[in-house]
Amino acid sequence: MITWMNWVQAALTSLLVIRMVVVGFFQPVRGRLFCWAMFTRGSYITFTFTGYDDAGVRKTVDVLDMVSPHNPGVTPRRLERMAAYLELSLDHVSGEGALMDVAGTRAIRVERGCVVF
Protein backbone atom coordinates (compact mmCIF):
# COMPACT_ATOMS: atom_id res chain seq x y z
CA MET A 1 0.00 0.00 0.00
CA ILE A 2 1.27 3.45 -0.91
CA THR A 3 1.66 5.74 2.09
CA TRP A 4 2.55 9.44 2.41
CA MET A 5 6.11 8.34 3.13
CA ASN A 6 6.34 6.83 -0.35
CA TRP A 7 5.37 10.19 -1.83
CA VAL A 8 8.05 11.89 0.24
CA GLN A 9 10.53 9.37 -1.15
CA ALA A 10 9.34 10.10 -4.69
CA ALA A 11 9.70 13.87 -4.15
CA LEU A 12 13.21 13.54 -2.72
CA THR A 13 14.22 11.23 -5.57
CA SER A 14 12.95 13.74 -8.12
CA LEU A 15 14.99 16.51 -6.50
CA LEU A 16 18.08 14.30 -6.54
CA VAL A 17 17.59 13.49 -10.24
CA ILE A 18 17.12 17.17 -11.11
CA ARG A 19 20.26 18.11 -9.20
CA MET A 20 22.26 15.32 -10.84
CA VAL A 21 21.18 16.36 -14.33
CA VAL A 22 21.71 20.09 -13.77
CA VAL A 23 25.06 19.75 -11.99
CA GLY A 24 26.32 17.03 -14.29
CA PHE A 25 25.31 18.73 -17.50
CA PHE A 26 26.66 22.17 -16.76
CA GLN A 27 29.75 21.20 -14.80
CA PRO A 28 32.76 22.93 -16.35
CA VAL A 29 35.54 20.81 -17.77
CA ARG A 30 38.58 21.65 -15.71
CA GLY A 31 42.14 21.20 -16.69
CA ARG A 32 44.75 19.61 -14.54
CA LEU A 33 48.44 19.97 -14.68
CA PHE A 34 50.64 17.08 -13.86
CA CYS A 35 52.99 17.59 -11.07
CA TRP A 36 54.53 15.35 -8.52
CA ALA A 37 56.15 16.61 -5.43
CA MET A 38 59.13 15.41 -3.52
CA PHE A 39 57.49 16.01 -0.20
CA THR A 40 59.18 15.85 3.12
CA ARG A 41 57.71 17.36 6.23
CA GLY A 42 58.32 21.05 6.36
CA SER A 43 60.90 21.19 3.63
CA TYR A 44 60.50 22.20 0.06
CA ILE A 45 62.35 20.47 -2.67
CA THR A 46 62.78 21.52 -6.23
CA PHE A 47 60.60 19.45 -8.40
CA THR A 48 60.18 18.70 -12.05
CA PHE A 49 57.13 19.74 -13.98
CA THR A 50 56.71 17.72 -17.15
CA GLY A 51 54.76 19.11 -20.03
CA TYR A 52 54.51 19.20 -23.78
CA ASP A 53 54.84 22.09 -26.13
CA ASP A 54 52.54 22.80 -29.05
CA ALA A 55 54.58 20.54 -31.30
CA GLY A 56 54.21 17.66 -28.83
CA VAL A 57 57.81 17.85 -27.66
CA ARG A 58 58.27 16.94 -24.02
CA LYS A 59 59.58 19.65 -21.73
CA THR A 60 60.56 19.38 -18.14
CA VAL A 61 60.59 22.35 -15.85
CA ASP A 62 61.80 22.56 -12.30
CA VAL A 63 59.23 23.99 -9.97
CA LEU A 64 59.32 24.64 -6.28
CA ASP A 65 56.39 22.65 -5.10
CA MET A 66 54.84 21.41 -1.93
CA VAL A 67 52.04 19.15 -2.99
CA SER A 68 51.46 16.36 -0.54
CA PRO A 69 51.31 12.76 -1.74
CA HIS A 70 47.63 12.94 -0.90
CA ASN A 71 46.96 15.51 -3.54
CA PRO A 72 49.38 15.28 -6.42
CA GLY A 73 47.26 17.06 -9.01
CA VAL A 74 47.73 20.76 -9.52
CA THR A 75 45.31 23.20 -11.10
CA PRO A 76 46.49 26.60 -12.33
CA ARG A 77 44.87 28.29 -9.34
CA ARG A 78 46.54 25.89 -6.98
CA LEU A 79 49.89 26.63 -8.56
CA GLU A 80 49.24 30.33 -8.02
CA ARG A 81 48.36 29.71 -4.38
CA MET A 82 51.44 27.57 -3.89
CA ALA A 83 53.61 30.30 -5.31
CA ALA A 84 51.97 32.80 -2.96
CA TYR A 85 52.59 30.52 0.00
CA LEU A 86 56.23 30.19 -0.94
CA GLU A 87 56.32 33.97 -1.20
CA LEU A 88 57.61 33.57 -4.70
CA SER A 89 56.40 35.13 -7.85
CA LEU A 90 55.79 32.66 -10.62
CA ASP A 91 58.82 34.18 -12.30
CA HIS A 92 60.87 31.94 -10.07
CA VAL A 93 59.82 28.90 -12.06
CA SER A 94 62.88 27.80 -13.92
CA GLY A 95 63.05 26.41 -17.42
CA GLU A 96 61.95 27.50 -20.80
CA GLY A 97 59.42 26.28 -23.33
CA ALA A 98 55.73 25.63 -23.21
CA LEU A 99 53.76 23.46 -20.86
CA MET A 100 50.81 21.43 -21.99
CA ASP A 101 47.53 22.83 -23.11
CA VAL A 102 45.16 21.99 -20.29
CA ALA A 103 41.97 20.27 -21.36
CA GLY A 104 41.29 22.83 -24.01
CA THR A 105 40.76 25.52 -21.39
CA ARG A 106 43.77 27.68 -20.67
CA ALA A 107 47.15 27.13 -22.20
CA ILE A 108 49.93 27.33 -19.70
CA ARG A 109 53.31 28.17 -21.03
CA VAL A 110 56.68 28.77 -19.56
CA GLU A 111 58.50 31.54 -21.34
CA ARG A 112 61.91 32.66 -20.18
CA GLY A 113 61.34 31.22 -16.77
CA CYS A 114 57.89 32.69 -16.30
CA VAL A 115 54.62 30.79 -16.16
CA VAL A 116 52.06 32.49 -18.40
CA PHE A 117 48.39 31.80 -17.70
Partner: peptide, 24 residues
Protein backbone atom coordinates in the same frame (compact mmCIF):
# COMPACT_ATOMS: atom_id res chain seq x y z
CA UNK B 1 39.44 17.57 -25.85
CA UNK B 2 42.45 16.79 -23.69
CA UNK B 3 40.99 13.41 -22.71
CA UNK B 4 39.42 12.53 -26.06
CA UNK B 5 42.67 13.05 -27.95
CA UNK B 6 44.42 10.50 -25.75
CA UNK B 7 46.91 13.19 -24.75
CA UNK B 8 45.83 13.34 -21.11
CA UNK B 9 46.34 9.63 -20.44
CA UNK B 10 49.55 9.52 -22.48
CA UNK B 11 50.99 12.43 -20.52
CA UNK B 12 49.79 11.07 -17.22
CA UNK B 13 51.41 7.66 -17.64
CA UNK B 14 54.58 9.10 -19.11
CA UNK B 15 55.32 11.52 -16.31
CA UNK B 16 54.15 9.15 -13.58
CA UNK B 17 56.58 6.52 -14.88
CA UNK B 18 59.32 9.12 -14.73
CA UNK B 19 58.42 10.47 -11.33
CA UNK B 20 57.48 7.26 -9.49
CA UNK B 21 61.00 6.56 -8.27
CA UNK B 22 61.30 10.09 -6.91
CA UNK B 23 58.16 9.87 -4.82
CA UNK B 24 58.78 9.48 -1.10
Amino acid sequence: AHYMSGLLLAQYVHFTAQAQRKLP
